[in-house]
């Protein structure tokens, strides 16, 4: 059971950035997101604003997972823990009256980095299925630790009575302002991850996904590269957590449940592994589908599950690949 058999090595063919629109699509996507509040206000559909806001936030989390799973080929099954760390940091600090975003973010980033460094250093010594399982174990530890936070609601979670301020101003209390703050974070996250992937470091990470031995023989320390990516990815996910807690005005252990980690994986697979903007697309597709189906029937999860199974059985390479195949007609590859 080698790393190749488990990681993205066995998943769809390596360079997944062949889409000609690659440079354009993210800009189009961001512009669409940016225009959305105007449309929502014009039509009075403010409910949709909070849904799309959630999409933007989850897109940051999915993007961060894509860095290690899609680009690095490390199937982490405990990524929701980082989102939860960010969310709990925001919840607890707002509860304690020190909820300014400029205070919360550094603390959340530091905690996520510490958790990531510790769990990453242990997990990355294993490979293949053992890696999936050990990240799951750490995720579960974080989950149960949050359940043990008795002073902060334990199992029941913690309600935020106000949102984080930004440098003392209650910016996030305004839905539209909150949306643009989230979108700003998404744009920054996308730019950052894109830059990481394009760098020497990112190429080594990508190379290690396909052939760690070769990358090591070039003189790279594969373990350290992966650890750095793992920590960065966790820190980015904690930013999503901080925003999520503020958006929902609620934090609970459920944020860290292993099913949440599974959903994050699903998002980036729908989008297409490693094709960063696919992660954004996948988060949008996932949450919209959830919304549409749950409006349909209370048993929407049934249809959702069937769709997941069919998706895995009949498509490979996600939405980004599907779009590519549709645009280059008859280009049946793989």
């Amino acid at each position: 059971m080698s790393a190749e058999a488990t990681g993205a090595g066995a998943a769809p063919p390596a360079p997944r950035r062949a889409l000609a629109l690659d440079g354009v699509s993210p800009l189009v996507l961001l512009a669409l997101f940016g225009l959305f509040p105007l449309v929502a206000i014009a039509t009075g559909q403010t409910y949709w604003l909070s849904l799309v806001n959630r999409i933007v936030i989850m897109a940051i989390a999915a993007l961060s997972l894509d860095l290690i799973l899609g680009v690095g080929g490390l199937v982490s099954f405990g990524h929701a823990a980082f989102v939860g760390i960010g969310a709990y940091t925001a919840g607890i600090m707002v509860d304690g009256g020190r909820g300014d975003l400029l205070l919360v973010l550094p603390v959340a980033l530091a905690l996520a980095a510490a958790f990531g460094a510790f769990t990453g250093a242990a997990s990355l010594r294993t490979k293949g299925v053992a890696f999936i399982m050990i990240t799951l174990a750490f995720g579960q530890m974080a989950f149960f630790f949050s359940q043990a936070l008795y002073a902060y609601g334990g199992d029941d979670g913690l309600t935020l009575f106000e949102r984080s301020t930004v440098a003392g101003f209650p910016v996030l209390e305004n839905k539209v302002a909150f949306f643009y703050v989230s979108l700003g974070f998404l744009a920054a996250a996308y730019t950052l991850v894109r830059a990481i992937v394009g760098s020497r470091f990112g190429r080594a990470l990508q190379g290690a996904r396909d052939n760690p031995v070769r990358v090591a023989s070039f003189g790279f320390d594969v373990f350290r590269i992966r650890l750095a990516a793992y920590v960065m990815s966790g820190m980015l996910a904690s930013v999503a957590g901080v925003l999520l807690a503020n958006q929902a005005e609620f934090v609970s252990p459920a944020y860290m449940a292993w099913q949440r980690s599974g959903e994050l994986i699903f998002m980036i697979i729908i989008g297409g592994l490693g094709s960063l903007w696919g992660a954004v697309l996948g988060a949008a597709a996932f949450l919209l589908l959830e919304e549409a189906l749950s409006g349909f029937s209370e048993h929407w999860k049934l249809a959702f599950g069937v769709l997941i199974v069919l998706f895995v059985l009949f498509t490979r390479g996600g939405l980004a690949d599907l779009l590519r195949r549709l645009t280059s007609r008859g280009g049946a590859r793989g």
Partner: peptide
Amino acid sequence: RSHLDQVLATFGLILVLNET
């Protein structure tokens, strides 16, 4: 298939059977 596909498809089955 890859382990990732297996994880995902069986994750979908969990949803289906729990809801059924």
